[in-house]
Simulated assay, not measured.
Amino acid sequence: MPRLATVALAAGAALLLRRAVRSRMRSAPLWPLPALETPVSGYGRGATVPRRVLVTGRAVPAEGVVELRLEGERLPAWEPGAHIDLVLPSGEVRQYSLCGDPARPDVYRIATRLIGEEHGGRGGSREVHEQLHEGVEVEIRGPRNRFPLTAAPSYVFVAGGIGVTPVLPMVRAAEAAGADWRLVYCGRSRASMPYLADLVRLGGDRVTVVAQDESGHPDLGFLASVPAETAVYCCGPEGLMAAVTAAMPEGRAPRLERFSGPAPAGGTAFEVELRRSGRTVAVPADRSVLAAVREEVPGLMYSCTQGFCGTCVQTVLEGEVDHRDELLTEAERADSMLICVSRCAGRKLVLDL
């Protein structure tokens, strides 16, 4: 995959700065942040500056799950819910939630479950499991946070399988702050659920374990009566998040963190004018803007192709966008789009390319 270009880095830094300023105006995070650096909550055009880190530890917290300990110099501080971009040996980039201790800025911990292609895997988890061992140096970008934990008197956390990784530091933060909290932790079996023993030890009967091979699916009916001041967080498979959303009181929504992009939706053909290049590209109904534009601009940067990482974000000069990403704020959508997933809501878009 192409390296970061100077122009993209400059644009990314500008957008990150705007996002960071806005984030400081929101409600204060619950976690007491380290004093080394201010965590950045936003995304940007392209990625943040790459950093080299060393794999200094490897563990197996559950069947099919590998945890990596990553160490480097002056790693940025982070808040519960944050993730990093991990550049794999192949050059592909994957996003992994940080599941360690935010008070240890010199050490990052991530965990990933091995997912085969037959279950929708794209090869990233296999690279982690097979190629990243102690002593291997890798590149990361971030951390960034689209799933921040904000101050609340009480919390309900719902995690499914490897979706516990961003929830783990949240639960620890809630406990440290003396907040009331409850966790519903779901998985195929107890053996497949990472950090289960740690969470039960921390929360006791506040942790409801739902192992599918023992008790089927979780009963989420209690969410219908969750008080307004209780913040509800969920990370896990799409089915679990849909169930949590459906169980919430009318007019309320949980805070969600997804593993993968939204399911592809239908669309129509349209044109994209590349204003600076002076070219117009036809985008068929069954192709993404990214795929079509890269035929004219081969060096265009991209990464996740699922509307998560922000690498392919472009400025929209004209036209109405059908936004399908999980990343940009409403303000940013006024003049930007992620061309890997979003489309034109009309007949033509004009991009600053």
Rank of each mutant, 00 (worst) to 15 (best):
Q314V: 13
A5L: 10
V272P: 01
G251Q: 02
S154H: 06
P194E: 11
L114P: 06
R141Y: 03
S90E: 09
D180P: 02
P153F: 11
E320Y: 13
V350D: 04
L9D: 08
Q131P: 00
V107Q: 04
I115N: 11
R26Q: 04
F222Q: 05
L75I: 15
A197K: 03
A197C: 01
R258V: 02
P105T: 15
C340L: 11
C304S: 10
V244H: 00
E318M: 03
A173D: 00
G187S: 13
G46S: 06
V272S: 06
C235V: 10
A174E: 05
L351M: 14
L196F: 03
V272W: 05
G100C: 05
R18Y: 10
T315F: 06
E92R: 09
A176H: 03
E63D: 14
L240M: 07
H323M: 13
A263Q: 13
V164A: 09
G135W: 08
R3F: 06
T208K: 09
G310F: 04
E73N: 12
V136S: 14
S154W: 01
S277P: 00
E332Y: 09
R126S: 04
D286W: 02
P32D: 09
H119D: 08
R94V: 13
G135L: 11
Y155V: 00
V65M: 08
L196K: 07
V136N: 13
P169N: 05
R126E: 10
Q95F: 01
P76W: 00
A242C: 13
M337R: 08
V283T: 07
G12T: 11
A151I: 14
G187V: 10
E271Q: 14
G116E: 14
E296C: 13
T311V: 04
R324G: 11
E71P: 02
R141F: 02
A62S: 04
E117C: 01
V184E: 03
L220Q: 10
E73Q: 14
A231V: 01
F308L: 15
V226R: 00
K348W: 03
G46A: 08
A247T: 00
L86E: 07
V289L: 10
V164R: 13
C235Y: 10
Y233C: 12
G124W: 02
L256F: 02
R324A: 10
S336Q: 15
P194C: 07
L9M: 14
P32I: 06
G310E: 07
I162C: 08
